[in-house]
Design a protein around this nucleic acid. Structure first.
Lengths: 167, 167
DNA sequence: TTAAACTTTCAAAAATAATTGAAAGTTTGT
DNA sequence: ACAAACTTTCAATTATTTTTGAAAGTTTAA
């Protein structure tokens, strides 16, 4: 396999994977492209490489910047803007989980808390509802916190975790 | 808030959350409904509660069973089938991560390995590509394994982890 | 074997999400 | 202040995904 083919395969695969996880395909593709580019890429070049419109490129770059995983860069003497991706994978993971937590998990937790705190009356049906949603609330909260802790430990998470437990 | 309202809110929220994570809304809603039902529910009742067609119910129930998180149940004397969800949340998490790993992560890893092992020639561009995709391969592999380990430890993962480290 | 009571399948329709492209907006240099 | 060189916005279009519903399939009981 030659470079161009490999690069294309990677970008396509990343795009497909993104779709399956609820991330728009183009957004994932742009991100993939920037991840494997050793220097910042202009909007023109992104449009050209991925065969997408200016509007599409603009909107998805904005979204990626909102997620905090793509940055604008300015080159001296050049009028146009260039873009780079966060290339440190630990940092990338931290940012993605922070954002997903903020945007999706936290709001879901709020609802879970609400619905799990209705008065259950006496019926087994309502008892079970309260019980199950309470458990779900605890579980999601725990998972969310765990993810947060894990990203905090980053690279050497296991070692640091042990240290923290020891002391 | 009364029971019916709470139940509906929960089902809707779970459906919306599912969409954002690449799971079809109805599938997530059916799952939510079964999760908080204290007894097995018939297809009729699912259709009625969620206001969906028979075909839709059938296909999404099949998908949920393929994921291993919903089971068929037969009631004595009744001709029709009833459905229940896996209600143990740890078990649910294990099954979901196993399936997503098998369906999405493993195939992605295969491609990552492929593209990261091209010969990099001399150009900085190609060097960077190989370097970055290799790192990504390692990272995804590590994350996938970690998730597997974590689910293995289940409930009291922290405690058991410490035990394992100690001995 | 027949028919009633179910479930599954899948082509067509509907709903949703992504994309385009041109007009409007912004920034920079002269 | 002007205009060139860009970027952003958003209504309309296109693509993708989901849903429907009726026909086909299956199972059970008599």
């Amino acid at each position: 396999m030659e470079f161009k083919e490999a690069k294309n395969k990677f970008v396509q695969t990343w795009g497909a994977l993104g779709s399956q996880w609820g991330i728009n395909k183009t957004m994932a593709q742009i991100h993939a492209l920037l991840m494997v580019s050793n220097e910042a890429v202009s909007m023109e070049d992104i449009m050209e490489e991925l065969q997408i419109s200016r509007g599409n490129a603009s909107m998805n770059l904005r979204a990626l910047m909102d997620w905090g995983i793509v940055y604008k860069e300015y080159k001296a003497g050049e009028r146009k803007e260039f873009f780079t991706a966060e290339k440190d994978l630990d940092e990338l993971a931290v940012k993605i989980s922070r954002e997903r937590s903020k945007r999706e998990i936290k709001p879901a937790l709020k609802i879970l808390k609400e619905v799990s705190t209705i008065e259950a009356k006496d019926s087994a049906e309502e008892q079970h509802f309260v019980d199950q949603t309470s458990k779900l609330y605890d579980f999601v909260l725990k998972a969310d916190n765990m993810l947060d802790k894990m990203t905090e430990f980053n690279d050497n998470w296991l070692g640091k975790l042990v240290m923290k437990i020891m002391k």
